[in-house]
Nucleic acid binder design. Structure first.
Lengths: 150, 150
DNA sequence: TACGTATACATCGTGACACGACTTAATTGC
DNA sequence: GCAATTAAGTCGTGTCACGATGTATACGTA
């Protein structure tokens, strides 16, 4: 039984082995690449007056089930947040006039989120910029996994 | 003229073109994979009482130039944030007893950030969990780039 | 039909985090 | 020696997520 730390009762009983320095380094490099991309994305979003959350929300809204309108709860699920976090995000999107809410006529508890033309334009511009960046940094991402190990 | 490895259209139109639906979808899938990983990471960090920023900070501090102590400004650079954002993060890390500040004797303006044994233990546990997850989801990441386009 | 329960969303208070603008302290460059 | 620069920290503001809670609407069943 390996005992690398004094109290390891709760989680990770197996593989409690201390990572090697190279493993720490690989994780740091991976995170660094992620941060670089996310920083780019944040700046690109800011350039059109958005935040990353709003960009991601628009992306989900746009692509949800080939155009079907998404509800707040479904948006939360896609964004992996709580319902009320998504509701708040939608409120900020509405305030920014990027989407509208519409009560689902078939279930009046549900709020459908619908992109405005302005939201659609913002998203299209951001998407174009992101596509270019992703194509450009494809190599950096692939390297992480090919160099990493094994 | 630089050749951006894109041969679809003329250089001029490159950004103005509306992304296709499949391109929106590819971006949405990429973000979804990223969110899945980041949500895992956030949960793993929360399980040891950390946030993702703190985990990333510890990772940088640990791996900075093979053990050399990092300053607040250098940490900011690595994390791609502003100096004062890093200073605030370090303050929270200090409060959580994960690191200590130490004035650099050779330049008393600089604050060196030094991990405590507790910080080291937290990081090691998180790193081990992340290594496993990354190895497991390697395929998902690689698919994103192979399926996307050429 | 009536009514309790589950569901979907919204609201409120709190905390982490980032930022711009500003301050303080130490170093540097003449 | 002293102004300019640099490193770090402080303050106020905004985004965002969360738990706890509130409020409709839908549903299930007696």
């Amino acid at each position: 039984m390996p005992l690398p730390s004094d109290q390891d009762d709760a989680l990770v009983v197996e593989d409690a082995r201390q990572p090697t320095y190279d493993e720490f380094l690989a994780l740091a490099n991976f995170r660094s690449t992620l941060r670089r991309f996310l920083a780019f994305s944040e700046q690109a979003a800011a350039d059109v007056g958005l935040t990353m959350q709003r960009y991601q929300a628009l992306l989900v809204i746009k692509t949800y089930r080939a155009g079907e309108h998404i509800s707040v709860g479904e948006l939360a699920e896609q964004l992996m947040t709580r319902d009320h976090s998504a509701a708040e995000l939608v409120s900020r999107l509405v305030q920014a006039k990027l989407v509208k809410r519409k009560t689902d006529p078939s279930d009046r508890r549900r709020s459908l989120v619908i992109m405005t033309p302005s939201g659609d334009r913002c998203l299209a511009r951001l998407a174009a910029v992101h596509l270019r960046e992703l194509r450009a940094s494809k190599g950096a991402f692939l390297n992480l996994f090919n160099v990493g190990k094994e």
